[in-house]
Amino acid sequence: MFDALEQDAVTELLNVAVSRSAAALSRMVGKPVAMSVPNVRILSRAEALNAIGGNRNTPLIAVGEQFSGPFSGRALLVFPEARSLHLVQAIVGDQLTLEEIADLEEDAMTEVGNVILNNCLSGIANMLGCRIEATLPHCFQGGVEQIFKRTIRGDDDGVILFMSIDFSIRDRDIGGFIILLLDLNAMSNLRSAIARYVDGVRRSLTDRESP
């Protein structure tokens, strides 16, 4: 789907986006947030299901947004519930009890998901030089199949960009996944944008070599 250079370009693009997310989270938490460099893969729906993997019944929490415009599709952030409780705890602080954290988990995760997904989408929008309209984020809870059924349907003909991300907040590691389901139109727009970007890179490389 992508050649090696394009793959690198997409990875870099999303890396920039994700580090913006980390910076935004860090501002929110008031503590440094480290985020690992994600490896971007293009997967089928079934592959993505398996990649989230674990036990199919492992409870997950997901935040999804739908975006449209010249570039449309769905964005999904997925965490195992056990991790998300730690994430929420890291964000809201240690003084709350487990029950209190569970009570506001959905609110907090919706916002966290919103921040992370918006940064990814705006990174892509910047690259494509367009605006993206998006819905307000929704929170989903359940097993991986349940969540996919409500967010990424089997008859979708889009392409899935799949990333594992690892945060570290206050010495706690919180691993999750970002899933971008791009429709075919968005995918071809992305590819031409990447091509332009790669051309630019190549040109700058030759420019540097020529003199």
Partner: peptide, 10 residues
């Protein structure tokens, strides 16, 4: 970019 946001007091 046209992206909306939700912000919670929590």
């Amino acid at each position: 970019t046209g992206l909306p946001a939700v912000i919670s007091h929590h």
